[in-house]
Amino acid sequence: MTDIIDGNAVAADVRDGLGDAIDTLADADVTPSLATVLMSDDPASETYVSMKQDDCEEVGIDAIDIELDPDAPAEELYDTIDDLNDDPEVDGILVQMPVPDHVDDRAVLRRIDPLKDVDGFHPENVGRLVAGNARYKPCTPHGVQKLLAAADVETDGADAVVVGRSDIVGKPMANLFVQKDEYGNATTTVCHSRTEDLAAKTRAADIVVAAAGVPEMIDGDMLSEGVTVVDVGINRVDADTEKGYELVGDVEYESAKEKAGAITPVPGGVGPMTRAMLLWNTVKAASLQHDVPVDLP
């Protein structure tokens, strides 16, 4: 029997587990707060921000919603970030990506105070992650670690293949796998668009994390028996449905499920964990900035 790793259930456990830490902060008269900044009229981005706001309210985190005109000068976004950096009532800052073309996204990431960078993308936080002393782990790779732990998947000594080398998922995921740490210690291969014979790499893996953004690029023929498959991809493809599309991962689920010992579905796998770990990072940010130690789940 293949273990279907339920991201919704694991994410709910993480959110529930944050309750004690939030209560500890409340005893010190601290309420964690997250500011989300949206500079886009893209419906998907608007939905993502709304969901994050709802998540905050559900667990007791103050949600600060800031929306900027997508046609406004880049300086308006930079000034907004500066104001949030200086505001002691704001613990975490998340600028929803993508930003408009006239805004330098890397400048945005550098602008955020590293202590308030709950995405974990500021160069200082990236450096700390690579050095093995992470302040905030990027939400999606951290969520993958939590899913593997919940499914009792052993990473110590395992051969892990990460398909994709993005700054958001692929690179930090590989760095977490190789760390001399819990849920690390894996022998890790990073595959990408220039990799030759991808199937040979994935067939040799004990754990495959698919994060390339290519619909159903990995199928069962590319996997070994008993492999753990974590599908980070979420792709909209045309389909004969009421909406005219369906969401699929980077893995062809039905054939992969026949080979896998454990697998995450799409949707309902990694996605809920990304949101849960944002809350986790926000609570940690409040703990660090207000010097109130907490136990995190």
Rank of each mutant, 00 (worst) to 15 (best):
295 D>K: 13
100 P>E: 03
164 G>K: 07
36 T>C: 11
76 E>H: 08
218 I>N: 00
41 D>H: 12
220 G>D: 12
50 S>R: 15
231 D>V: 00
156 D>Y: 06
137 K>L: 15
55 D>T: 01
244 G>D: 14
83 D>R: 15
83 D>H: 05
30 V>F: 09
297 P>C: 04
183 Y>C: 04
234 I>L: 08
69 D>S: 08
35 A>S: 07
128 R>G: 03
1 M>W: 03
80 T>M: 03
163 V>F: 08
277 M>P: 10
8 N>R: 14
80 T>L: 02
96 Q>E: 08
269 G>S: 03
134 A>I: 05
271 G>R: 05
152 D>T: 03
165 R>P: 05
113 D>K: 13
123 P>I: 03
116 K>W: 09
9 A>Q: 14
202 T>Q: 04
10 V>I: 06
11 A>R: 04
148 L>A: 08
211 A>F: 03
68 L>N: 02
276 A>H: 11
267 P>R: 06
110 R>I: 12
49 V>S: 04
59 V>S: 08
169 V>A: 01
268 G>A: 13
158 A>N: 11
269 G>C: 11
163 V>E: 07
90 V>W: 06
225 E>F: 02
284 K>Y: 06
54 D>T: 09
276 A>K: 00
47 T>V: 11
23 D>L: 14
69 D>P: 07
77 L>S: 05
91 D>P: 05
95 V>W: 05
110 R>C: 11
20 D>L: 12
224 S>A: 11
25 L>E: 04
248 V>D: 10
290 H>V: 00
220 G>P: 12
62 D>C: 00
169 V>S: 05
281 N>M: 10
187 T>N: 09
13 D>C: 01
281 N>Q: 10
153 V>C: 10
111 R>I: 04
180 K>C: 11
273 M>W: 01
74 A>E: 15
48 Y>M: 01
170 G>I: 03
120 G>K: 07
113 D>F: 04
99 V>E: 08
